[in-house]
């Protein structure tokens, strides 16, 4: 069975995030007040063939740690459903 999966990668806490900081500084000028703790990251969307949801999640978590993120500076999380390709 094919499961839609989303993997999100963000910088680890304590790692400087110049992109997030720049976005945060730009927001008040556009009239968006009260927005803090902005962190920039990436999201990846994919379909994963697995016997069940847990199997898809296991595969997604493994590939996120091996390739999609650099664990030295980034965290990754995977979830099934609600990807760009559909909703489980």
């Amino acid at each position: 069975m094919n499961f839609p999966v989303t993997v999100t990668v963000t910088l680890r806490e304590g790692i400087a995030d110049p992109e997030g900081a720049t976005i945060e500084r730009a927001l008040p000028a556009l009239g968006f007040e009260g927005v803090t703790h902005v962190r920039a990251g990436k999201s990846f969307h994919m379909m994963i063939d697995a016997v069940d949801e847990a199997g898809a999640l296991e595969k997604a978590t493994a590939l996120a740690q091996r390739l999609l993120s650099n664990p030295v500076i980034e965290n990754s999380s995977a979830r099934v459903g609600d990807s760009a390709w559909g909703v489980a």
Partner: peptide, 9 residues
Amino acid sequence: GALQKNRGL
């Protein structure tokens, strides 16, 4: 370690 985007982007 790792190399990140430059401060100042």
